[in-house]
Design a protein around this nucleic acid. Structure first.
Lengths: 205, 205
DNA sequence: TAGTATACTGACTGGTCGGTCAGATCAATC
DNA sequence: GATTGATCTGACCGACCAGTCAGTATACTA
């Protein structure tokens, strides 16, 4: 019984948590944090409002869990993809495409992610350090790769921090543009455009 | 008396409106739309809460007025600066620098602007058409200039819409980065970095 | 000075929503 | 079928806040 933890409780608990988070992501994505109500989330999850408080301490708790889960996943995917690529050109490509694809598959999450980090400037300090770190880690790996490439004269002598951030932001921007225009072109094309523009922008010669 | 309108009332009204908008910008910038209260704004403006409703119909009305005023100003400045520049390189430069400077001077406005248009994806339809148009006009002028330059083979055959949006987003990103890091470098340097990166990215050859 | 119009105020209202908790329901065990 | 404990529920509470309006203050006129 204690072989792999208390199955009954744990399995149920995990299932409910996932169910609640999934419902919450949909509601937060559609309405934003403030306008989303606990009644909405409870209804979407198909449970009573009180049940939410058996699994999460507050509305904010649910929100942070929904945000953190996706952040961890995209951080891991990006690290894996960038790590697997060998040349700096392919690393940039991997960075951009991983994001474009992930957000294409998880639009609900993207809306939350975007609303939150879009508002970093407005409300700087209200996120836990762990989530801020996850956010910043996304750019840092690319920054490291760019610094290395610059030192080896594989690219021009650009500021790696600014350049990594620029790639990050163009990617973000084109994802938004697609969501606004309901995408004239495919995700692949947008990715290729960014890689091409940046590569020409930083290449030697 | 009716020579240039009812002076007494109009002058007072205009003064109060400006006073309220100014206070509102500060509050909205610090707290965001939802968390800002009418009591906050009234206190900051040094008037009673009821007075706010003599000049604006609702909280949202104040917010839209604060947003629209700044948007019109930055649209006009950008159009003037880009229009005055002759070469495409200088147009890009004018576009970027106008924004970086304007936002550097009007940080309160930037926070509101950014929170609002950052959230476009999340809440697409809740802005009046006029403000959406103002927002989009910013990019369109640059887009037109880029299309022309491409047709004259002054730059590579890039998609002008995507490229204009990319410039727009990198600019946005670096402004945010400066606000987060409390700016390692000056506004001029950031502007120069963007122009350089993009120019190399789209130049012929 | 009385009368009137204009500008302003802040206590109050109605509605909303996060969070609580007394009790219902279900499952397992004897 | 009775007992117990774990799970779930939704009516309720208190805090909060946009918007209102009866009343005050100020300025202007006769």
């Amino acid at each position: 019984m204690p072989l792999q933890g208390r199955t009954k409780q744990d399995v149920l608990s995990e299932f409910r948590c996932a169910e609640i988070l999934d419902a919450a992501r949909g509601i937060f994505a559609r309405k934003g944090f403030e306008a989303a109500t606990m009644d909405d989330i409870a209804a979407a999850a198909g449970v009573g409002k009180g049940t939410l408080y058996l699994y999460y301490r507050s509305k904010r708790d649910i929100y942070l869990a929904a945000l953190g889960g996706g952040l961890r996943e995209i951080r891991d995917r990006t690290q894996a993809a960038v790590g697997a690529a060998t040349t700096i050109h392919d690393k940039i490509r991997a960075f951009v495409l991983t994001k474009v694809h992930y957000f294409n598959e998880h639009r609900d999450f993207y809306r939350i992610y975007h609303a939150e980090f879009g508002n970093l400037v407005t409300h700087p300090s209200c996120l836990p350090d762990e989530l801020m770190a996850l956010y910043l880690q996304q750019v840092q790996q690319l920054e490291g790769a760019l610094a290395e490439a610059r030192d080896q004269h594989l690219v021009r002598a650009v500021d790696p921090g600014k350049t990594a951030f620029a790639v990050f932001e163009i990617t973000r921007g084109l994802i938004i543009r697609r969501l606004l225009d309901q995408s004239t072109t495919g995700a692949e094309d947008d990715g290729a455009f960014i890689v091409d523009l940046i590569w020409k922008g930083i290449a030697q010669r």
